[in-house]
Design a protein around this nucleic acid. Structure first.
Length: 496
RNA sequence: GCCCCCAUUGUCUAGUGGCCCAGGACGUGGCCCUCUCAAGGCCAAAACAGGGGUUCGAAUCCCCUUGGGGGCACCA
């Protein structure tokens, strides 16, 4: 594994403009895995050079989402590091210095064109069905022309002087060599009129200064890769290894996730935002396992991985460049798998907030008894209150009609309930091994089916059609409450 | 419109010229187990986008077509 044997320095560079989504989470995960695997460093860099798009709290939410997934970083705005500052808004002077250097070497130029004029140029080009691009008005202004205008405070930007002939070939680890005609490239703006560098320059400078060895990012950056590569080359810097990950498509496989579809997903109990996933009942272990496998595989049959497994087994070579449709059904499957793999005491602690959220007051002792009988029945942690909330209710309110058992009249059901009650009353305790044999005997004698007898008990005792196993549940609830609930059922049936 | 990327069952994928009349997983259908629901076990249906090459031989290499995706901002 040539690409992962040397310690890497990788960075995840989100802009604080919104929630961390699944695509970002996967990129961060791969960064983290590679850093941990090679004994390198994972750097978090906040790309907030556009102040207008800044969303208060977004940065903190990104931290929280990453930590929830189990991803930590070695350098970043919050933890510091030797290559800071780690927020681009705090690095303005650094970028300016490199921009000046490009101007001096003739690889960039000062441009005084107004946005209004450029809009006009662009729409004119589009009308002629030409690709929109800068028309080169300021490209060859001499230093003598530029200096006085800048000194006079005229608004200007700095543009990269793109070669107008020849081709540029860049290597992406997953796709090999990518060659583009330079004439299809533009004189991109490097520094805005407010003096702040745009992403293209800022990222290149930061990646160089921070000694980034591998740039792992979404494939939406592929079209600007030649520019980024050219910036590195122009400065004479060694390029990082470029790795452009496939994009995530919406579940139908048709197009990227839109805002409207994200809202619909939430209705369905799904979300592409990491911050929503915990409340929706997902385990971070499941989310990590699932996202790791979207665009990466280990072999032809292994697919259950913990984070440490992934640190050991991840490899860039097994990355898949084709777009992947998000499949939440598979996330549900992984969630069930990881819930079942949880140690019981861990399951207890993770279930607790979900009961509290629904207004229950769960105690650890009861939770510990419930854990083993609900574990294999949970698809999401949020299913716990619905399945096992009755354990924390002082009383339950079964619907009388529900107590009437299939193929029996209400009178016959009442009769059966009385027999059940009598047997339960006669028992010394309600351990499954104590209670189940006499109830099975009752089934035999009555000529009814086990489902009929146990079904009546289930409704009477839990007020649910679906519950954890009956006898285990009865023992946890306790004999007094069980008897009280059976008596009430008898009363309800007799009153019908 | 222009540029770039991608292309194996509904979905995620294995597959780097013969081991493939294509393997695993989710989902779907059926059966078994069963006090409900799950979990578990077994079985089944389901794919190499199309067309040209190259080769003794192609899912694998090349070309074209088609389809899908991304990008064309003083956003990242």
């Amino acid at each position: 594994m040539a690409t992962s044997s040397q310690p890497v320095r990788v960075r995840f560079a989100p802009s604080p403009t919104g929630h961390l989504h699944l695509g970002g989470a996967r990129t961060a995960l791969y960064d983290y895995l590679l850093a941990r695997q090679t004994g390198g460093q994972f750097i978090l860099r906040i790309e907030d050079s556009d102040r207008r798009r800044f969303v208060p709290g977004a940065e903190e939410e990104i931290y929280a989402s990453l930590r929830w997934l189990g991803i930590d970083w070695d350098e970043g705005p919050d933890v510091g590091g030797d290559y800071g500052p780690y927020r681009q808004s705090e690095r303005k002077e650094i970028y300016q210095q490199y921009a000046d250097q490009l101007i001096e070497s003739g690889h960039a130029f000062t441009c005084f064109c107004t946005p209004e004029r450029l809009d006009l140029v662009r729409s004119e080009q589009q009308r002629r069905k030409e690709p929109p691009h800068y028309d080169g008005t300021c490209r060859n202004l001499s230093a003598d022309e530029v200096k006085p205008r800048v000194a006079a405070g005229e608004r200007h930007v700095i543009r990269f002087k793109m070669p107008q002939e020849g081709t540029t070939t860049v290597t992406d680890l997953l796709r090999g060599e990518i060659t583009v005609e330079n004439r299809t490239l533009d004189d991109y703006i490097l520094v805005r009129s407010d003096g702040l560098a745009l992403y293209h320059l800022a990222a290149a400078v930061d990646d160089h200064l921070m000694k980034i060895t591998h740039v792992i990012r979404g494939s939406e950056w592929l079209p600007s890769l030649p520019l980024h590569s050219l910036i590195h080359r122009t400065f004479g810097w060694q390029e990082p290894v470029w790795v452009h990950l496939s994009v995530f498509l919406k579940p139908s496989g048709k197009g990227k996730m839109s805002k409207r579809e994200s809202a619909e997903l939430i209705q369905d109990g799904h979300s592409i935002f990491v911050k929503d996933l915990e409340k929706l009942g997902y385990l971070p272990e499941a989310v990590v396992n699932w996202t790791a496998l979207m665009g990466w595989s280990y072999d032809d049959h292994t697919e259950v991985f913990t984070l440490p497994d992934l640190v050991e087994k991840f490899s860039l070579e097994k990355l898949n460049p084709s777009p992947a449709a998000i499949n939440f059904t598979k996330l549900d499957h992984f969630n069930g798998l990881h819930i079942r793999a949880l140690p019981l005491d861990e399951l207890v602690q993770r279930m607790k907030p979900f009961f509290i959220e629904k207004g229950y007051q769960p105690d650890d002792a009861t939770l510990a008894k419930i854990a083993p009988i609900v574990q294999e029945r949970l698809q999401g942690m949020d299913d716990a209150p619905e399945l096992a909330g009755f354990f924390f209710k002082p009383d339950v309110q079964p619907d009388a009609a529900e107590l009437v058992i299939k193929d029996l009249t209400s009178a016959e059901s009442a009769e059966l309930a009385k027999k059940i009650l009598a047997i339960l009353e006669s028992l010394p305790d309600l351990k499954p091994e104590t209670a189940e044999p006499p109830m099975r005997e009752l089934v035999e004698q009555s000529g009814l089916k086990a489902g009929q007898v146990f079904g009546l008990m289930r409704i009477a005792i839990t007020a649910q059609r679906v519950s954890p196993p009956l006898f285990e549940s009865m023992e946890i609830i306790g004999k007094d409450k069980v008897l009280a609930r059976m008596r009430r059922a008898v009363g309800l049936l007799e009153a019908m």
